[in-house]
Design a protein around this nucleic acid. Structure first.
Lengths: 231, 231
DNA sequence: ATTCTTTTTATGTCTGCTCATAATAGGCCT
DNA sequence: AGGCCTATTATGAGCAGACATAAAAAGAAT
């Protein structure tokens, strides 16, 4: 019969997922070829292919030409973290957002920063984000002026955070992020209004454009703040 | 001419990405319809569709039937965190892995845990993961015995961590994760061999199967450990 | 037996074409 | 104006057939 309707590849996808979950297709084992599955489900090979592509993207199966498709030995699970603007994050929590720039100037960077940007001219900025008047996040940032010369304009980050300006103006091609827990140093503690040694959630984020690294930011979150991810 | 070769949709994808990055297609603006792009690129509509589907999945564009495709106002960026087994994470860092079970028993859970599992019978377990002999991660876990009755077998987690057993046996349908920075409490500090109040990276992870919540884990990472994500 | 070459095969992708679906836009009636 | 109905249209999905590509398997040559 006509099959199709409103989601044929999804039916294949779900059934395959069920079989994997039910161990009908065991971890590491080969599963039938696309042509065989197409015949079994009474659909075109492309439709099975679509379902399998989604499963592969989710890490549930591994596919190789000629070798065939096998169930992932250990499904590599991924968690997704939505990266909101800090302003939106704070406003979503129902608190009033405000922002204060501590400084922005072209400056020579320390070696660990230089290592990522090479010989580029760099703008350094520091700022605090407040939630309901209380300091929530301390932001320290380096911006590649060779790639983003517009960032050097004086007073640019007085009212809008560097992050928001960059989101609107910087091309994006990828990046990395690292999260750790660190004891607040004296300067950080003073800026955030917490005791020295208080546990901060430190997020370091390097953003790359197609032509190279654009910005490196370190966000120190005050104790009590959480990052939520989905998996 | 024949075009194609090894990735025609990828060429469309990359060119679209370039135009978005270069603001040739402005945020919020409609972009040409699939048919128009297909003509421009000299390929089939399905090929353009494939490229656009990937861009939509990446959050760069938003598509609606009839309304057309528009560039996302503010590209929702997200970072991907690969969730490895703690053993693999430690071994990948070049340290010797070992593991000690502190206890595993059926137990009544405190209200915040009950809130997630409802009336299910729960197994509680606690364990430490060592990297090169030094405590690295303290793991406290609740397992839904109604969904995973096999977890109740005595001695099961003596040599293999609950996490590894669950990865192999528990069906997976989704979950949530939260990361925060917390000061080590007395008991945690003693178990991890750090000073009370030391900054720990606390990861709480709830894993759901198709029939309900399977396990809730809290991993307290010793100071100095980092979580790396890609964006 | 080992190494090189050829065949085979499963996936990856493209093309044209058809139909389905959702939402807008326009027309019609009150 | 306001509300309802219908036509239009961009995306979503499917099918059959074709060719491309990578890798395994089989065969040939040393």
């Amino acid at each position: 019969m006509t099959a199709a309707a409103r989601g044929d590849w999804r039916a294949v996808h779900d059934e395959a997922m069920r079989r994997i979950g039910a161990r009908e297709w065991k971890p590491g084992a080969l599963i039938p070829a696309e042509t065989a599955l197409a015949e079994e489900f009474g659909c075109a090979r492309a439709t099975v292919g679509r379902a399998m592509r989604e499963l592969a993207a989710a890490g549930l199966i591994e596919r190789r030409r000629k070798a065939g498709t096998r169930v992932a030995e250990r499904p590599v699970r991924h968690a997704r973290l939505a990266i909101p603007l800090i302003r939106e994050e704070i406003e979503a929590a129902g608190a009033a957002y405000s922002y204060a720039l501590l400084g922005a100037e072209e400056r020579a960077a320390p070696p660990p920063v230089r290592a990522r940007f090479g010989e580029a001219r760099l703008l350094h900025s520091a700022a605090i984000h407040f939630a309901g008047g209380a300091p929530a996040v301390l932001e320290e940032r380096w911006i590649n002026l060779d790639l983003m010369p517009g960032a050097a304009e004086p007073g640019l980050f007085e009212t809008e955070s560097a992050n928001e300006w960059l989101v609107r103006h910087a091309p994006f091609a990828g990046g990395e992020m690292a999260v750790s827990s660190e004891a607040a140093e004296a300067a950080e503690a003073a800026a955030l209004g917490v005791a020295p040694g208080a546990p901060l959630l430190a997020v370091e984020r390097l953003t790359r454009g197609p032509e190279g690294p654009v910005t490196l930011a370190r966000l120190a979150h005050a104790p009590g703040r959480r990052m939520r991810l989905e998996l």
